[in-house]
Structures are given as C-alpha cells and as structure tokens.
Design a protein around this nucleic acid. Structure first.
Lengths: 129, 129
DNA sequence: CTGCATGTACTAATAGTACAAGTACAATAT
DNA sequence: ATATTGTACTTGTACTATTAGTACATGCAG
C-alpha cells in the first residue's frame, strides 16, 4: 500500500489519509483482517504527527472501515468493503452541491448561505466528532 | 425607516442591515425610487464604519433590491419588491438544515460536512461577493 | 516488577478566514 | 476648488480548524 500525502494541499492531511485508505480497501490492496500500521508507525513513515493519523483512524473506525483492538493494533473491518462502497465524502459533496445550487437559484448570496450554514452547524451540534 | 443594529449579536452587522432593508421594502416602508442614505450618512447615524454599510449595499445591489447611481446616490430598485423575498433567509436556513440533517443521519461528521461545504463554496464561486 | 507498544485524551501553536475599520481614490455636482 | 457619491486596498482582530506536543490507561514480553 502506497500512501502519498501532500501537506500543501488545501485538503486536510487526515482527510487525505481517509480517502486513500478507503481507496485501498475498495481496490483490494487492503483486505478484511489486514493489520494497519500503528498510529505512531504510520506517522513516522509519512513524517506526520501521530495524532493526525489517529484522527483519520478515528473517522474510519466510526465508519466501520477499520477496527481498533486496543493494544493489539488496528485492523481492516470485516465489512470494510461494504462500508466503503458508497463514498460518504462523495455523497456529502453531491448532496450539499445540489442544495447550494438551488439556494443560489432562488437568489441567495454566498454570504447568506455561509452565515446560515455557520449558524446551523453552531446551534445544532453533533455529539462526538 | 427605523434601523436597529445590535453589534453584539452573532449575526454580522452588514447582514442585519440587509435583512432590515429588505424587510422595509416588503413592508412598504421603502418604495421603488426612494433614495437611501449615503453609505457615510447611514454609517454615521448608526455609529458604524461606512464600509460596513457599503458591504450591505453591495449585496443588495447584487440582488437588485437597490441600485447605485454613482455620485447621485443609491435608490430602491424598480423590481425591489419582487427581488426582495424576505423569506429568503428562512428558506436558506430551512433548506440547509434539512440537508445537513440527512447527511448526519447517513453518518457524516460535522467536520466532513464543513470541509465539503467549504470546498464547494470555494470551487464553484458565485460572481461578485 | 520493569520496559515497551498500543490507542486515546488534553492542551498549545499555527494557519486560514470573516468581519470591521482606516485610508485613499475616481467621478461629478455645485 | 470643494464636497459628496460609491468603491478599492490594506490592516487589526476574533474565531475556527488543523496539526503538534505531552501525558495517560491498558496490556504484552522479559
């Protein structure tokens, strides 16, 4: 498995990790049960902070793409391929694009949309993260 | 026309101006052709910076609610009432809330939603702003 | 028990962004 | 000339997200 990280990209590093690991799973480069490098190992290999890797892992765990087994390490989830199938990121982008386009057509300015979005995300916060 | 600005509110001042001017148009307090105070005049009356007022005017011009006639001043647009759907803000908030709720239900984290939103707004930018 | 590796939680530094303010400018009427 | 219109450019501040540094709980190996 080859991970390529571009720290100058506007896409956050932890997101790049998520995307590439998901890709590796769908491509078959990573199979259920396979062990992943530890957060520190991978961080060391890629010259990143281990918390950045941990953040990516955390998200993948939430999506049931990988599974943390405490001191034993982290492994590809049994249903990884299934849970990777629909790329959440793509869905989110698509759905949001759709809505934003409609809002613009009704005459809303970007500023208005941004403000409304910010308020919504601030007021009704999701637990966890 | 009575404008009330609350600088401690989380809603930006220029947005409050936009909302209230649109409100005045839909209520009939301001009619097409009516002259608006100059950016400096209004800023002085409300103890604001003239650029803050200018920003609000800029948005309203973009929405064809008002019309800048250069040195002659700024006036209510002929189709102001039509272009000034006061419910716009409510619609925007409602539509966005709806979409965000769906995305959360599919398992997307706030972080993912924020990133996707930011990218969309950055990439497919509206003119002006 | 000691030492080491695992994931995780908490805090600090940095970068990016939005709002607002200060200044300066082009255009035009008086 | 002077004043007034809207506008452009730059700066300071506050807020947020990302990333990094440190410390901790758990459990294996010797």
């Amino acid at each position: 498995m080859e991970l390529i990280i571009n720290t100058t990209d506007s896409v956050p590093v932890f997101s790049q990790l998520i995307d590439q690991i998901k890709n590796a799973v769908t491509n078959g480069d990573l199979s259920p049960g396979d062990a992943l490098p530890s957060v520190r190992q991978l961080a060391n290999d890629l010259n990143l902070n281990h918390n950045t890797v941990a953040k990516a892992y955390k998200h993948l765990i939430r999506d049931s793409v990988i599974q943390a087994k405490g001191y034993r390490g982290t492994f590809i989830h049994i249903d990884a391929k299934l849970n990777c199938n629909f790329d959440l990121n793509t869905v989110v982008t698509f759905k949001l694009s759709e809505t934003i386009q409609i809002l613009r057509q009704t005459g809303a300015t970007d500023s208005e949309i941004r403000i409304a979005f910010g308020n919504i995300m601030k007021i009704q916060q999701n637990s966890g993260e």
